[in-house]
């Protein structure tokens, strides 16, 4: 598609610099939206989507494979589990304190229900950002057309399809 004399469109210095400048703000802002959902618009879902978009932004600036090495897939799946566990855990904790499921008022302390709600928003944020990140990485690495055809036809592909070429893009 591009001319043969030009190198392929790899990471542009300008884009990398801009993303490097913007990314901390996006992360901070995503966490702000999650934490501050009790006071201003937003909440776990929106903050999680912003944090997920941050990972996508990094992947576009620096390439998907370096980002995949940086963001550990196990950590992402762990985020999902921790999010749900937080939510259910708070519900069960209120039951253990002789309240109903998710009855925050039984937790001792001033403003306890507000803090419990904020913790739950964080859990939802962890779930959403984890789902977005893993969806991105999986679709990106996923169904290669040639690999699928090779799988279906039973031919041996020249490269192993499951092996993402992690060494090439990082340079």
């Amino acid at each position: 598609m591009s001319d043969a004399r030009r190198s392929p469109y790899v990471e542009s210095t300008i884009i990398m610099t801009t993303v490097r400048v913007i990314a901390p703000f996006v992360m901070t802002y995503g966490l702000f939206v999650m934490f501050h959902g009790a006071k201003s618009p937003g909440g776990g879902f929106q903050g999680g989507a912003i944090v997920g978009a941050l990972v996508l932004m990094l992947a576009f600036a620096f390439g998907a494979d370096p980002t995949r090495e940086w963001v550990n897939q196990r950590v992402v799946v762990g985020l999902l589990v921790v999010g749900v566990a937080t939510f259910v855990g708070i519900g069960l904790a209120t039951m253990a304190l002789r309240g109903s499921f998710l009855e925050y008022a039984v937790i001792a302390g001033a403003k306890s229900s507000k803090y419990a709600i904020e913790l739950i928003e964080l859990g939802i944020g962890a779930i959403v950002s984890g789902v977005i990140t893993s969806l991105f990485f999986l679709i990106d690495a996923g169904f290669d057309v040639e690999a699928d055809a090779a799988d279906a036809g039973g031919e041996t592909p020249e490269e192993t399809p499951g092996e993402p070429s992690s060494g090439e893009v990082g340079s």
């Binding site: 913007i22 703000f25 996006v26 802002y29 929106q46 996508l56 576009f60």
Partner: peptide, 19 residues
């Protein structure tokens, strides 16, 4: 949010159209 994320779409599509 839009100021932070809007250029993501431009970068994504422009990289996509090349390769």
């Amino acid at each position: 949010v839009y100021a932070l994320l809007n250029f993501l779409m431009s970068i994504a599509i422009s990289k996509f159209t090349v390769e």
